[in-house]
Each structure stands twice: as structure tokens, then as C-alpha cells.
Design a protein around this nucleic acid. Structure first.
Lengths: 211, 211
DNA sequence: GCTAATATTGACCGATGGGTCAATAGCATG
DNA sequence: CATGCTATTGACCCATCGGTCAATATTAGC
């Protein structure tokens, strides 16, 4: 920022109305991931986006709105595949569960994990965001899985029990693993390998659910 | 807070050096639980403790230190029982797992759940706290469980596989349930019953782990 | 080029809240 | 009751940061 006499010295201003929002959202995601919501500043977001602070407020009326946009963006971009992946609700759980858990394992190293952490942290401060997140992502996935389990029960493949709670039995360890890695990434801790966890847990829980 | 003409109107000041720290920690816990770390103010903590803001700073040099004290207090108070409960490492997993999961279910409605949420949220901001939490609580419990599983494997009761990852298979769903309830408590969502989850998951995962 | 329209800027504002400290009130001691 | 010690107070300080807006640079149209 200081020294080095300015490299290439491009125009200081540039009007690119179309590109701004996505650029700002991308910058905001990076800052939120690094700093969390509380410590992240709009100034930092602006700097990262190569833009003045005022510009950010032109496109996003408040910090909360910006955060909403980031969350929306990340979630829609990365969870879209899930629904498609699980369309075959009637396929045997032997196929569905490993598929879902492998998908979940990929989440571990993506920005989604950080966004999830922040959402967990700030759910109380953004009740409506928590609601949207629940309705658009969590309830859908949970519903999908629950339905698949219920059908497997109807086919006599899975033991009796509340299918919704079985859904927790299935994805819970992955969620725990993702959060564990998020929280203790910088601590001196042995982090679980999510791929192995997915494979091993899939085998165990499948056997456990059988009649 | 206003009105009602002041009840009992006791002395405005009172010197109780011994009692202050614990009172302040208790008040801080309530405020942190309600507001989260970011939104909690030292003023609110002081008011809740029936004390001036300056007094809080006499006993806790900074907001971070206060938070540290709260976390330390909650964790040590409530997780002490776990170790004792799991002393019988060689008891069959059929006993140990339901015991642990039932314990975990109790966590769901205690302040621990909120503190855990905040710790998850702020782990990046308090690296040393995350380290302590890991070393004092998480690693211990995980180690206990891992050892128990490894011994069960040695006895031929549990299938092959990484015992540490099996530990995630066991407690992961409970953690997911606790966090789910924390995050969506105020959302329009159906919250899982932790007691039922503990019982049902214990049965399923025990069967799944068998050779 | 000239001009109108507007995207962009960054200095500025006001509120918030962590942290300080000189003054003060309660207590112990003789 | 006087006195010294100190626990307690709350007014104050000031850095931070979300948010505003009049000025300005850039672009498009003619």
C-alpha cells in the first residue's frame, strides 16, 4: 500500500455498475470468513473489493443486508447440488447415505463451513436469517432424508423408530466433524478426516439401522 | 426496572470483596447467554450484578477476561461429572454409550449449550480459549471415549475401524441436536427431543458398531 | 467536444461501548 | 468518635465503526 511507486497506476475510479454487487459479495465473504461478523468492518470489505466504503452502501443498505446476501449466495450456490443428488428418494439407503455423507465431507474445506459457523453464532441476532436458512436449507434436507428413511421403513429395510431422529443419527457426525475442524483449526488438535469419517460412519449407521 | 418505588431500598454501596467475582461471573453468564459475546455490554453485566461498571473492571481487566472466566466456570462446573461417570472404561459399551448420551441430552437445556454456541462462534477471536477448551474438555472426553472403543475392539465386541472416528459417530448426533436447538430455538422449527434422540441413537449405533 | 446523467468517492457524523481514574462511601481498628 | 484503608462508584475519555451525503470523476449521447 505504501512505497513501490504505484504499479500500473490504473484509473482511480471506474464505473461498473453491473459487476459491483458480486465483487462486493465476494469480498465480504472473504472478510466475514476471516473475521467473523462482529469483527468484520465495512471498510475492510470495501478495501478488499477495491472500492470506497460509500460504494458498498450504495449496493447494500446495511451490514446485515450484506451478510444476508453473502449467506444467501453461498448457500444457494453450494447446496443446490444436494437436492439433485437426492432426487432418487426411493433408491436404497445403501446408496443414498454414502452419497449424502460424501457430499457433506466436501463441505468441510469450503467457505460454507465458515459461513455455517457464523450463522450458528449470529442466529439470535438475525432471527429472520435463521428462519430463511432453516426453511431453505435445513428443513429441506432434513425432510428429504426423513422421507427417504420413512420409505425404507415402509419397505421393511429399516428398524422402527422416529425417522427424523434417525436423520440426526446419519448426518450428525458429519456436522460435528465440520464444526470440530472449524473451531479447532488453529488449535493444537488432531482434526478428523471428513472423507474417512463419511465412509466409516456410513457403514456403521447403515448396519445399525437395519432391521 | 422503573416504577414500583424501589423495594427495600438497601444501602447503595456495600463492600463484599469475596462475593463479587462469583456474582459478576453469574451475571455475565446470563448476559452472554442472552446477547452473545458481541452484543453483550459490560454495562449490562454490571447492572445485572447490581454493581457499577467500574467494579466489574476491578475484578476482570477486560471483557475477554470476563468471558474466559465465565467459560471456565461453566465448563468446569458441568463437565466434572462426565469423567466420574465414565470411569468404568472397561464396562461394556452397551452401558457406557447410553450413559454418555443421556448425559449429553441434559446439556441441551442448560446454559452450557449457549456457552458452547458462543465458543463455537468466537473460537477464532480467542485462540487460547479454544485451546484450553479443547485440552480440558473436548480432548479428554474424546480420549475417554476413544479408549473405551479401542478396548471394546480388543475384546472383539466392536468392528474394525478408527476408534476416534467412531467416537464422532457416537456423540455427533447429540452435538448436532444441541446446536440445532440452540440455533433454531426462536425460529418456527420442530426441535428434536434430545432424550429420545439419545435413546434411539444409542440403540442404532450400538448395533452398527457390533462385529 | 460538450453536456447531462450518474456511479463513485471519502471526509464527516453520531452512537456505541470498552476502559480509566479521582472522588467517595463503607468498614475496621483503637 | 476519629482515622486510615480500600472497595466502590459513575462521570469521563476516546477509538471504533456503521452509515450519510455533497462533491467529483466517468461515461454515454449528441
Amino acid at each position: 500500500m505504501t512505497g513501490t511507486k504505484s504499479e500500473a497506476a490504473p484509473r482511480r475510479r471506474q464505473r461498473r455498475k453491473e459487476a459491483r454487487p458480486s465483487e462486493i459479495v465476494a469480498a465480504a465473504m472473504a472478510v466475514f470468513v476471516e473475521e467473523g461478523f462482529g469483527r468484520a468492518t465495512m471498510e475492510a470489505v470495501a478495501r478488499r473489493a477495491g472500492v470506497a466504503k460509500g460504494t458498498v452502501f450504495v449496493y447494500f443498505p446495511s451490514k446485515q443486508d450484506l451478510f444476508r446476501a453473502v449467506a444467501q449466495n453461498v448457500l444457494s450456490a453450494n447446496f443446490a447440488g444436494f437436492e439433485a443428488a437426492a432426487t432418487g428418494l426411493d433408491r436404497p439407503l445403501e446408496d443414498l447415505i454414502p452419497l449424502l455423507l460424501t457430499q457433506a465431507a466436501r463441505v468441510g474445506d469450503s467457505p460454507i463451513a465458515s459461513i455455517i459457523r457464523i450463522l450458528v453464532a449470529e442466529a439470535r441476532s438475525f432471527p429472520d436469517l435463521a428462519q430463511v436458512w432453516h426453511d431453505e436449507v435445513v428443513a429441506k434436507m432434513l425432510g428429504l432424508l426423513t422421507t427417504a428413511i420413512a420409505r425404507a421403513q415402509a419397505r421393511g429395510e429399516v428398524r422402527a423408530g422416529d425417522p427424523k431422529l434417525y436423520a440426526f443419527s446419519i448426518f450428525g457426525p458429519m456436522m460435528a466433524g465440520v464444526i470440530f475442524r472449524e473451531v479447532f483449526r488453529d488449535a493444537d488438535a488432531e482434526l478428523p478426516n471428513l472423507g474417512e469419517l463419511a465412509a466409516q460412519h456410513a457403514r456403521a449407521i447403515l448396519d445399525g439401522l437395519r432391521v
